[in-house]
Design a protein around this nucleic acid. Sequence first.
DNA 1: GCTATTCATTGATTACGATCAAGAAATCAG
DNA 2: CTGATTTCTTGATCGTAATCAATGAATAGC
Lengths: 193, 193
Amino acid sequence: MEQHLLLKELQSKYGFPTEEFPKLLAFFRKKQFKKNEIIFKSGDIVKHTYFVLKGCTRQYYVSPEGAERTIYFAEEGAFCGELMSFLHGTPTNLNLQALEDTDVIYLDLKNWETAITSIPAFTLYHIKNHQRLMAKLKEEVGKAHNETPDEKYRRLVNEQPHLLQRLPQYQIAADIGVTPETLSRIRKRNTQI
Amino acid sequence: MEQHLLLKELQSKYGFPTEEFPKLLAFFRKKQFKKNEIIFKSGDIVKHTYFVLKGCTRQYYVSPEGAERTIYFAEEGAFCGELMSFLHGTPTNLNLQALEDTDVIYLDLKNWETAITSIPAFTLYHIKNHQRLMAKLKEEVGKAHNETPDEKYRRLVNEQPHLLQRLPQYQIAADIGVTPETLSRIRKRNTQI
DNA sequence: GCTATTCATTGATTACGATCAAGAAATCAG
DNA sequence: CTGATTTCTTGATCGTAATCAATGAATAGC
């Protein structure tokens, strides 16, 4: 029997008792999103927290002028959501969009709280995983200013090469923080060896 | 009797039972840092997590070329540390520096774990506070690319005016992500009304 | 109080990404 | 398969921050 993607994620990071898993999984429900569907948008109060089984989502920020800036992509085996809004019931200022037809499982707040309070290993996963994410974000903030677009592109090629294959270039451009034109030139510069 | 700064912080955000506080405080130890002292640096394994009682610290990232980029400043009443390294025992890639003579209280890992497991309200503070920080960082990542340096400066003036008074300009410049020369010109542009 | 650093300002030049504009290539619908 | 969108590339111009360089102001050490 094949291992559930969620269990795999929980165990790959910090160990999770297999026997607890069915109990945890029971709190989740399934859902599907169509390609390009907006899952939540700025101003919404986020009601669910999602785990991607198949497909890909992007979380992004929209500036007052309408420019988009992607914060991160969640592929298969990753949580995506916005716990700040989810936990506090406040409007989010981020947007979440499915970039492909995407299958997820999700928790509502009630089930999330029950799961967290009744399954300590799940709590531990959360705390530790958030440290990981936070560390990544801090690094992003740090690098956001000190790296040239060329460096950012090469880092993306090294760290997340799969994204290059599954995303259109203007999405990559939004992630790096440049215009599509500039990305096209960067690619030209960095391809010819 | 004056309320302890830590209790104030714990209660201001999400409510913390006052009667539990002495028990929590007992896990902490005191320490002082001199102005400009490096508390930890990239490559270190962070052994403590700090709460600032007096003074100010900055957490920053150093690029391979030696350029510094400040992630955030912690003033009185704020935690500062690097839980990723602290909890996982892995080397950090961030640096923490006291910008003034600074008094802190701190926890080592053993006491942190004991406090977290024995004082649920402290756990709750952590989880929720991390969401807040994470949301801020995400916004930072989002704005890092879409804001012009002028906009970043004006946002700093609006959101953290006290920092302008207590920090030298080249620190502000490192925070905004420009050279000191550029900041000087930005200030000139934005001062003359 | 005076000298020595460190820090802030100003100027001139350079480099690079944004923007505007137009074609080419790829994707999609019928 | 064909026409219509959408996406990607290429070119030319423009604006702005980095860099290099030098002077002025403020701080710290003796």
